[in-house]
């Protein structure tokens, strides 16, 4: 009877957006009289930070600091259509819609600035701080605050834009299954290290080293949040979670957080996150959707590590102590 160590690896990819496409998201952007920008959407923030990311995307595209952008979302009386927040699609789909709307608004903004500065709009650039400068002659500039005032009160222009993103729906070919499920994929590789008590069947995940390739980390701290939380959920899926512990038997399902098991703050694996960025061709600034895939590779990595530790395969999730002990018993008998 002993505590045995093992490690396992898994590598995965994951599609961004609704399978087979056909899932639109639209966005509207307009400026207030003093040069703040309103983004109107109907996308839902589930806590992953969709509002913050849309603000950063709009700000980058228009050329203002993020705190000049206001997000109005999840209201069907004001926001244009969004298919929903699922399938790792929020950042990718809504982000692209916001970029398109913000580009159109930016163009009007530059045209108004050009009239004020008596130059061509194509000769202008933004400094990201809220000013519009003449390329090569930065002393000639105007603030976005003044441009917005001019547009509203003097020139009668609407600094606004419409954006939409839709990947045309793909229909699988009946006999061959030829289809286009997604336009871009995130990637991951996880190495898990576990200890298995061969007397109790209990598994302790000592560490997970996760490498995630996500296209672009639009806000690295928020990416980290999602990846750390996802990695935790992956481990939780591997070892604990089910609503029907004796599936397909319907009995003994948990009805509260005491019966439905998940690792608590005292059961955390040492978690390392490394992020690579290969921008996708059609992602907003190259971003892909990391929200789902980040919880996947830990499950097989832990399963493989358990085998490495005690030499039994548990091919049914979750990998409970009971399953491990039964397998060890069968192994000893066999």
């Amino acid at each position: 009877m002993a505590i045995r160590r093992g490690r396992g690896v898994a590598a995965i990819n994951y599609p961004t957006g609704m399978n087979l496409g056909g899932d639109p998201t639209q966005a509207l952007v307009h400026s207030t009289p003093t040069g703040n920008f309103m983004v109107t959407l109907s996308s839902v923030d589930l806590g992953q930070g969709m509002k913050q990311i849309m603000a950063q995307i709009c700000a980058e595209t228009i050329g203002v600091p993020t705190d000049r952008v206001i997000i109005d979302t999840a209201d069907t009386d004001t926001g244009p259509h969004c298919m929903g927040t699922f399938a790792s699609r929020g950042t990718h789909r809504a982000g692209n819609a916001v970029i398109q709307a913000a580009k159109e608004a930016r163009q009007v903004m530059l045209e108004v600035a050009a009239e004020e500065l008596e130059v061509n709009a194509s000769d202008l650039e933004t400094d990201g701080q809220g000013n519009i400068l003449v390329k090569g002659a930065p002393q000639k500039s105007i603030s976005i605050f003044d441009v917005a005032l001019s547009a509203h009160f003097k020139r009668g222009r609407s600094i606004s834009g419409r954006g939409m993103f839709l990947i045309p729906r793909s229909y699988p070919e009946k006999e061959t299954g030829a289809m286009k499920p997604s336009t871009c994929y995130a990637h991951a590789c996880t190495v898990a290290e576990v200890e298995v008590d061969d007397e109790t069947g209990e598994v302790t995940v000592l560490s997970v080293k996760n490498v995630f390739e996500i296209g672009r980390a639009l806000n690295p701290k928020m990416v980290e949040q999602q990846l750390v939380g996802g990695s935790w959920m992956g481990i939780s899926h591997a070892l604990y979670e089910t609503t029907e512990p004796y599936y397909p038997n319907r009995d003994h399902g948990g009805t509260d957080f005491n019966q439905y098991l998940m690792p608590g703050p005292g059961d955390l694996a040492e978690t390392e996150i490394i992020v690579l960025e290969r921008p996708s061709a059609d992602g907003p600034f190259g971003a892909k959707g990391p929200g789902e895939m980040c919880a996947n590779p830990q499950i097989p990595a832990v399963a493989n590590a358990v085998f490495d530790a005690v030499g039994v395969r548990i091919d049914t999730l979750p990998i409970t102590p009971e399953r491990i002990l039964r397998a060890l018993k069968a192994q000893a008998a066999g």
Partner: peptide, 28 residues
């Protein structure tokens, strides 16, 4: 978390103003 910028650097334009910045979340 570690961002390994050396991978795929040839196909990525870094140095943007708002994108890639760890801005605080406006909802927190």
């Amino acid at each position: 978390m570690e961002l390994r910028k050396d991978y795929f650097a040839d196909v990525r334009k870094d140095g943007l103003h708002e994108i890639g910045q760890p801005r605080p979340r406006l909802d927190s």
